[in-house]
C-alpha cells in the first residue's frame, strides 16, 4: 500500500519517544543551558581557581539539589497548566515534622514521614483544586498561608533542635564522596524525565495542560491526574524539607519563601511553559544548577547579596529571551 509507505517515511525511524524531532529540539535547548553552566563555571574558575575544585563543585550541586528537587515536582504541576505556590510552605511543614519524628523514630521512617506529610499537603491542594474548580493560583495562595502557619504551630513557634545524628547521616551523608541529596537529585531527574516521556501519567498531564477539553473527551480522568500532579509536587517538597532539616541539623519553620520562586525560575529556564502542555525535567534540573552556579560564583567573587539577586533575575529573563529568539529563527 503506497500510502502506508508514504506515512512510514514521515515517521521517525527509530526514536523511542513520541516525537524524535521534537526531542532533538529539546536536547539542543538543554545542551545550551549546560553550555552556559560550563562557561559560567570556567569563568568563575579563572577568577577564583578554587571554584573548580571537586569539593566546591559538589557544594554547588548540593545547593542546587533542594531547589532542583522542588523544581521537578513543580514541573509536573506547571505541565497541567496549574501552579503550586504552597510548596515553600510545604517544605517548612515537612522539615518540622520530620525533625520532630526523628526524635523518637528511626531515621528512614522520619524521612519517609516528611515525604508523606508533603504528599498529604499536595493531596489537599489537588482535591481543593479539582473539586472546587477554583484556579490553582488562588487555592495554593491560600494553602501557602495555611501550611506556613501550621509549620509554626507544630514547631511551637521556634526551630526544632536536637536532630539525631543518624537522621542527618541518612540525608546529609554521602556515597563515594557525593552527598546523598545530590544523588537523589540526579536520580529523581532521570525518573521524572522518564515518567514524563514514557508513562500515561506524563502523557495525560501534557494533554490536560495542552487542552483539557480534548483530554476529557479522550476519556482521560482529568481530575484524578491533575490532583496527582499536586501530590507529586507536595511529595518532592516533603523530601526537600527533610533534606534541609538533615543538612542544617535543625528544622526551621520559617524557611521556604525564597525556595518557591527559585524553583519556578529554574523550571521556566528549563523550557517549561507556564501556560501548560510543555515541560522538561532535565531542563528544570539544569535551571536549578545554573542558578546555584551563578549564586555561588558571585559569592566567591564577594559580590554583595543584593547584586546577586539582580544577576539571578536578569539571568532568568535572558534565558527566556534567548529561547524566544532561537525559536523565531527556527
Amino acid at each position: 500500500m503506497s500510502t502506508l509507505e508514504k506515512v512510514t517515511e514521515t515517521l521517525p525511524p527509530a526514536g523511542r519517544g513520541p516525537g524524535a524531532r521534537d526531542f532533538a529540539g529539546r536536547i539542543a535547548r538543554q545542551a545550551g543551558l549546560l553550555g552556559v553552566i560550563v562557561v559560567l563555571g570556567i569563568g568563575f574558575g579563572i577568577a577564583r581557581p578554587f571554584f573548580l575544585d571537586g569539593g566546591n563543585m559538589i557544594n554547588v550541586l548540593l545547593q542546587a539539589a533542594v531547589v532542583g528537587i522542588l523544581a521537578l515536582g513543580q514541573t509536573f504541576v506547571l505541565l497541567t497548566g496549574g501552579i503550586d505556590l504552597s510548596i515553600g510552605s510545604v517544605v517548612a511543614v515537612a522539615a518540622v515534622c520530620s525533625g520532630l519524628l526523628s526524635h523518637s523514630l528511626p531515621a528512614v521512617v522520619a524521612v519517609l514521614g516528611g515525604i508523606a506529610i508533603g504528599a498529604l499537603c499536595g493531596l489537599v491542594n489537588g482535591l481543593l483544586i479539582t473539586i472546587t474548580k477554583i484556579t490553582p493560583f488562588i487555592i495554593t495562595l491560600g494553602t501557602m498561608g495555611i501550611f506556613a502557619g501550621l509549620a509554626l504551630i507544630i514547631a511551637g513557634g521556634q526551630a526544632v533542635y536536637g536532630i539525631p545524628v543518624p537522621f542527618s547521616d541518612v540525608l546529609a551523608g554521602g556515597v563515594a564522596g557525593i552527598p546523598i541529596p545530590v544523588l537523589l537529585f540526579i536520580l529523581l531527574t532521570v525518573v521524572a524525565a522518564l515518567v514524563l516521556k514514557f508513562t500515561t501519567f506524563g502523557e495525560y498531564l501534557t494533554a490536560i495542560g495542552g487542552n483539557s477539553e480534548v483530554a476529557r473527551l479522550a476519556g482521560i480522568a482529568v481530575g484524578r491526574n491533575t490532583a496527582l500532579a499536586y501530590v507529586v509536587a507536595g511529595g518532592t517538597a516533603g523530601l526537600a524539607g527533610a533534606i534541609l532539616t538533615a543538612r542544617l541539623g535543625a528544622a526551621d519553620p520559617t524557611l521556604g519563601g525564597d525556595l518557591l520562586l527559585t524553583a519556578i525560575a529554574a523550571t521556566v529556564m528549563g523550557g517549561t511553559k507556564l501556560a501548560g502542555g510543555e515541560a522538561s525535567m532535565v531542563g528544570a534540573a539544569f535551571g536549578a544548577v545554573l542558578i546555584a552556579t551563578l549564586t555561588a560564583g558571585l559569592t566567591t567573587l564577594n559580590v554583595q547579596a543584593f547584586y546577586q539577586q539582580v544577576a539571578v533575575g536578569a539571568a532568568i529573563i535572558l534565558a527566556l529571551v534567548v529561547d524566544q529568539l532561537t525559536k523565531r529563527r527556527a
Binding site: P18, G19, E203, N211, L217
Partner: peptide, 20 residues
C-alpha cells in the same frame, strides 16, 4: 478540532488509549 496542539499526530491518535 479536538487535538492537543503541542502533541504529535501519533500522540494525539492514541491519546487516552495508550497500551501500557
Amino acid at each position: 478540532l479536538n487535538l492537543v496542539p503541542q502533541m504529535t499526530a501519533v500522540q494525539n491518535v492514541v491519546l487516552g488509549r495508550e497500551r501500557t
